[in-house]
């Protein structure tokens, strides 16, 4: 069953039906959702094309001028039209720093959501489909992990991973890449539980349905039934969780960076910017922390609104 002809169902069809069906219609009906989508899209585009759209390259040390440091936003008395949102203590343009920072935040957010999603789906599917001791083991693990705050788990994993790379210099990773990998691992590994539990629940429902029994009667290998029959049918709720988790992952990254265990200040994410700016809050240079904070808040709000809408739109009871 390897021909492309057969592998099509389950991959493209959800998208096609998505655009065709009620979900798209409910999207068009909700102005808040359309707005949230527009804002999210704006962030994505800014992140993707950061170097081209940002007015300055805030990390090119050659172009930084200390004379430009701590300039307030352009519309204020001491503002400089070159720097719309002002500059920080090293003369970096805040707007450019935010665009570059969103890039980092979204990259880490996406990567960690992908990691926790893959892990969560795999474990949830296995747990629900195989059942028995496997199920018990995975679910107890999930419960143990759930009994700690996610950020604590992330900090723990963070420490372990950093420790690992320190004692294994043969990996030869540079500081920034290491920071990225550590963040993705710690956020990704601390958030798989929700996916696993949701997927397990849906799997238990789907497993009992007659189309799965029909596949058993035909003699399809259980692994194939799991992947080709059940997986496509449990993906709906996963998409909803993934959207909301993206917002949470961006926050988690910001939190970790804020706590100083995240991205180094040389290549700041939104969280790092907020932490660095925090020091200037009381000396009057509020823009260094408020703008990155607002940028983060707007991004998270927009993604969350999208997630909320998706959850309602995919819930047949609310349609």
């Amino acid at each position: 069953m390897a021909d492309a002809h057969t592998s099509a169902p389950g991959l493209l069809d959800p998208l096609r039906r998505f655009l065709d069906g009620d979900v798209w219609a409910s999207f068009k009906r909700s102005p808040v959702t359309v707005g949230a989508a527009a804002v999210t899209l704006l962030y994505f585009l800014a992140a993707a094309f950061g170097p081209w759209v940002a007015p300055h390259d805030p990390f090119d040390l050659a172009k930084l001028d200390l004379l430009d440091s701590l300039i307030p936003p352009a519309w204020m008395a001491d503002g400089d039209p070159r720097f719309l949102l002002g500059t920080d203590d090293q003369g970096r343009d805040m707007l450019s720093a935010i665009i570059y920072g969103s890039r980092v935040s979204l990259l880490i957010g996406f990567a960690s959501v992908l990691l926790s999603m893959v892990l969560g789906i795999a474990l949830g599917l296995l747990s629900g489909f195989v059942g028995g001791a496997v199920d018990a083991f995975i679910m107890r693990m999930a419960e143990i992990q759930l009994s700690f705050p996610a950020i604590l788990v992330a900090l723990l994993i963070n420490g372990v991973v950093i420790g690992y790379f320190k004692t294994h210099p043969e990996w030869q990773v540079d500081q920034v890449t290491l920071a990225y990998v550590v963040l993705v691992l710690s956020i990704g590994l601390s958030n798989w539980v929700q996916y696993a539990r949701t997927v397990r629940g849906s799997t238990l429902v789907e497993r009992g349905k007659e189309y799965v029994q029909a596949a058993h009667v035909i003699g399809i290998h259980p692994a194939k039934i799991m992947l080709r029959h059940i997986l496509p049918n449990v993906m709906g709720p996963v998409l909803v969780i993934a959207t909301i988790q993206l917002a949470l992952a961006v926050i988690a990254e910001a939190t970790l960076s804020f706590l100083g265990v995240g991205v180094p200040p040389t290549e700041p994410s939104l969280g790092t910017l907020i932490r660095v700016g925090n020091d200037y809050l009381f000396s009057g240079e509020w823009w260094i922390t408020i703008f990155p904070g607002a940028a983060l808040a707007i991004l998270v709000l927009a993604v969350n609104l999208l997630g909320d809408w998706l959850r309602d739109a995919l819930n047949p009871k609310l349609r």
Binding site: P9, E210, I218
Partner: peptide, 24 residues
């Protein structure tokens, strides 16, 4: 099976549903 709404995988095209045993 009894339930015509549960016995066909909703994400598969009919031709793939009917072809599954042929391929298997």
């Amino acid at each position: 099976f009894q339930d015509p709404y549960a016995s066909l995988n909703p994400r598969w095209r009919v031709r793939d549903i009917v072809a599954e045993p042929i391929r298997a």
